[in-house]
Amino acid sequence: MRNASNLRETARLTRHPALDGLEMLAATYRDHAYALHTHPTWVFGVVTAGVERFRVGRTDNLAAPGSILVVNPEEPHDGEKGCEAGWSYRTCYPSPGLMREVADELELADLPMFSSAVLPAPDLARSFLVAHAGAGAEGAVESEAAMLVALAAIVRRFGDGRAQDTGAGPAGSAGRLALYDDLVTADLAVPLRLSALAAAAGVTRFQVIRDFKRTVGTTPGRYVRDRRVRRACDLIGEGLPLAAVAAETGFADQSHMTRAFKTVKGVTPAAYRAATAG
């Protein structure tokens, strides 16, 4: 492990083409802080130096070197330094398709979810780090297998094997959230007001706020930002110029998009584009 006092900010995002385009981040942060956000994927990571402090839902967590951190899909979470020097870690973001493959291998009835955000398993942490570090080296088959084995080992020991209740039922807050999502994502370039969401659902603006808080644990504004960043990722992957991406996803300008993008993805849109192109 490196000396935490010598940490210097870096961030490198790559993709593993053999693992459903698995996003893999190796980063060191001293002053960067993630805003509260969500992912449509899982998050698995291991801290290699320093300490990360992060909130998942209403729970505060500290991840020290050797800690495995896990976040389930759509769980609101943030991240910042947990000590003065900051933290270094390696993370990846497995898709539902990849996790379905892992679940099938382990003969789980449902996709695995995790009740704890920090997992005490130094042996699994070491295996994960070896697999992550080897993903960019020679031997694509070996690195592909190593990551699959590392993820399966974490799921086998800590995953509950039951699908998370995402609240997608037809009634109440969850049912209204589906309607809100349709309105938000229909045209991200169009400014959306709470009054429009409230009118569409036949509720008050206060109820809209409660629905977001109760169902996804965040505010409507943060939810819209997350959806804009997700769409920006898609458009960047399609090769659209960054200025055009910003305009199409509703950001005021490219600088605005860059600030929001980094608080969610940990890297700039330009760095994300380079990783996607690679």
Rank of each mutant, 00 (worst) to 15 (best):
L177W: 09
A35R: 12
G169A: 13
D110G: 14
A131D: 04
E101V: 14
G136I: 13
L242G: 01
Y180V: 09
G82R: 12
R162T: 14
R210T: 11
V216D: 03
A103F: 05
L7E: 08
A252H: 14
G136W: 08
P73Q: 00
T276A: 15
S173K: 08
H32N: 11
A150N: 03
E138T: 15
V43Q: 13
R2W: 02
D234P: 04
P65V: 06
Y272H: 12
N72C: 03
P76D: 05
A63V: 14
R53Y: 12
A178V: 11
T59Q: 13
P122V: 06
G278W: 07
F44K: 08
V149K: 08
E144Y: 14
G239N: 11
L183H: 09
R205C: 14
V184Y: 06
A133L: 12
G167C: 05
P73Y: 01
D20W: 13
V141S: 13
R55T: 14
A200W: 10
V46R: 06
L129G: 00
A178D: 03
G237S: 10
F251V: 05
A85M: 11
H32Y: 11
E138Y: 09
E107N: 10
A18S: 13
V71Q: 04
A121Q: 01
G217Y: 11
E142F: 12
L13F: 10
R259F: 09
V118P: 03
R231I: 00
V229R: 04
G266P: 05
F128R: 02
G172F: 10
G175M: 10
D160A: 11
A275L: 11
D165V: 07
G266E: 09
N61F: 06
Q254Y: 00
R273M: 04
L240R: 10
Y272I: 11
D123E: 15
D211I: 11
D20I: 12
V46S: 01
F251S: 06
A145M: 14
G50E: 07
G159W: 04
V216N: 06
G266N: 05
A145V: 14
P112W: 00
R176K: 01
C233E: 07
H39T: 13
L240W: 06
A125H: 06
A146Q: 09
A244C: 07
H77A: 05
G278R: 15
V267N: 03
W87N: 01
L240D: 00
P96K: 05
A135Q: 12
H37T: 12
M99D: 02
D31P: 00
P112E: 00
E84N: 06
L98H: 05
E101N: 04
A140E: 14
N72L: 06
